[in-house]
Simulated scan of single mutants.
Amino acid sequence: MATLLRKIGLIRLHDRDTEDPKHHHHRHQGSLKGSNKGNAKNSSLHRPGGSGSTEGGVLSPAELKNRQLEQSNKERQCPPPPPQPPAAAADKEARPPAASAAKTPAPCPLPPNRQHCTQVRSRRLMKELQDIRKLSERFITVELVEESLYDWNVKLHQLDKDSTLWQDMKETGTEYILLNLTFPDNFPFSPPFMRVLSPRLENGYVLDGGAICMELLTPRGWSSAYTVEAVMRQFAASLVKGQGRICRKAAKSKKSFSRKEAEATFKSLVKTHEKYGWVTPPVSDG
């Protein structure tokens, strides 16, 4: 029996070996093509099984047409914008908008001419302070008002000892005449505004509010060569020349001089002298 089976097997092997190679090759290629077609068709048309599917999960012609229409409609729609990377979004939030940045005013420096005038005024006043402190005699002393270089309280300690005003100071125990000087932005090319603070004086070219009638304190009579010391010496001379006195009347002596009143008085007297000239007026008129 075993011998018979071996013979049959040999016969079958012989038949396969003696088969026409061309016919065998053609049949093999046909099977491969059919297999590839089926795989391609199944890969493009296959969908998960469900109602309406044919056997093997292959779409019917009607379903294939519907699927093609759906795909076409989706392609016509505009795709959503791509999501912004986190780093770019953070950078955008960190940067302010250009419009808002343009609206923010930048700090504006002082104009060159004004800045120059401020520097000139500061240098001049610092030199004036040093020169006053170097005076051998105790003629005047200076105190800055609220530490401002442009606002001085000046104490006039000395007058002509033969004058009536000096006698009044001795009798009333007045150690000095206190004045206030404020320096404008364009000092020394414009004069300071000077007024008497205390004591309350009469005559001596001292007017209402403590205003002082002196031509050199006006723009017309001022020179940038005048120093504070020179102005104070001129003022001390005018007090004596104008026969200034300390007010002894109780009603007037208790009333303090006012800056607002002094400014108004000085403005008025400058206007008057510009109209009629700077001739020496009567004592009562300043």
Rank of each mutant, 00 (worst) to 15 (best):
D17E: 11
D17T: 10
D17Y: 13
T18D: 06
T18L: 09
T18Y: 06
E19I: 02
D20M: 00
P21M: 04
K22V: 12
K22W: 09
K22I: 12
H23Y: 15
H23D: 14
H23C: 14
H25L: 07
H26Y: 08
H26I: 08
H26A: 10
H28F: 15
Q29H: 13
Q29P: 01
Q29Y: 06
Q29S: 11
S31M: 07
S31A: 11
S31Y: 03
S31G: 06
L32I: 09
L32H: 07
K33A: 05
K33T: 05
G34Q: 10
S35P: 01
N36V: 14
N36M: 14
N36G: 12
K37F: 08
G38D: 03
G38C: 02
A40W: 08
A40I: 13
K41G: 10
K41Q: 13
K41F: 15
N42V: 03
N42W: 06
S43F: 09
S43N: 13
S43G: 08
S44V: 05
L45T: 06
H46I: 06
H46K: 09
H46V: 03
H46C: 06
H46P: 01
R47C: 04
P48D: 04
G49M: 14
G50Q: 01
G50F: 00
G50P: 00
G50S: 03
G50C: 01
S51L: 11
S51M: 08
S51R: 10
G52N: 06
G52E: 06
G52M: 03
T54N: 10
G56A: 01
G56C: 00
G56D: 00
G56F: 00
G57A: 01
V58C: 05
V58M: 12
L59T: 02
L59Q: 03
P61I: 04
A62N: 08
L64D: 08
L64G: 13
L64A: 13
K65S: 14
R67D: 08
L69K: 15
L69S: 12
E70V: 11
E70S: 09
E70I: 10
Q71S: 12
Q71M: 12
S72N: 11
S72D: 12
K74R: 14
K74M: 12
E75M: 09
Q77L: 14
P79Q: 15
P79E: 15
P80H: 02
P81C: 00
